[in-house]
């Protein structure tokens, strides 16, 4: 049980691009690595317009379902899988990651933890990008969100794995709150 009140968040604002991106931020593995897959998508607003100033982060297990606890995300050495990636959106609202598909952690369905920041978005948003279920039973969370569950599952396309983020309106992504958030 938390005893202290959390510091409030604020928008990332429009001017983060010279501060937060870093070389290799979106390449959790080098392109061409065996098993490498492109995770990509577009962040759109309530009018369907792409966000050119959003930042998407992912945090994931490795293919064996091991939670990485290794340093080096900001100075990638080409072989250490750290599980963390960061991608600002481009002029078309698109983000991309070159990564490996996460495995199941402790028997759960495999998913990428996703955080979204943007100018105009006053606090960060959390969501999950599940790998395609491929016949697996939905878990408790997917079941509990009902007919919006599709917004939490990536689609396989010709580029790899597609996960669009809709901040508002039709097809609005399910965003998550965890115990202790208010």
């Amino acid at each position: 049980m938390s005893t202290l009140t959390a510091t409030p968040g604020q928008t990332i604002g429009p001017f983060f691009h010279y501060a937060l991106p870093f070389d290799g931020d979106r390449e959790l593995v080098a392109p061409g690595t065996p098993g490498a897959v492109l995770l990509h998508g577009t962040v759109t607003d309530g009018a369907g317009a792409p966000l050119q100033d959003a930042l998407v982060e992912i945090w994931q297990a490795d293919p064996a379902g091991v939670v990485p606890q290794r340093t080096g995300s900001m100075r990638r050495d080409g072989h250490t899988f750290t599980g963390f990636g960061r991608s600002s959106t481009d002029i078309t609202g698109r983000y991309t990651f070159t990564t490996l598909e996460p495995g199941s952690v402790d028997g759960g369905l495999p998913f990428f933890g996703v955080t979204v920041f943007a100018r105009g978005l006053l606090n960060r948003l959390f969501t999950r990008a599940y790998l395609p279920l491929d016949g697996a039973e939905p878990d408790a969370l997917l079941t509990s969100v009902g007919d919006r569950a599709g917004t939490l599952v990536v689609e396989r396309d010709e580029h790899g794995l597609r996960f669009d983020v809709r901040l508002q309106g039709e097809g609005e992504t399910v965003f998550l709150t965890y115990p202790g958030h208010s």
Binding site: L167, F175, T177, Y178
Partner: peptide
């Protein structure tokens, strides 16, 4: 913020798996 805020309440999730951990950074970073 007008077109950039979710209109639906966030959905309660119990953190599991990867969500119980955070990325590590160190002297190398």
């Amino acid at each position: 913020s007008l077109l950039r805020h979710p209109t639906k309440d966030p959905h309660h999730a119990d953190p599991e798996g990867i969500e119980l951990w955070a990325p590590c950074f160190g002297e190398r970073d």
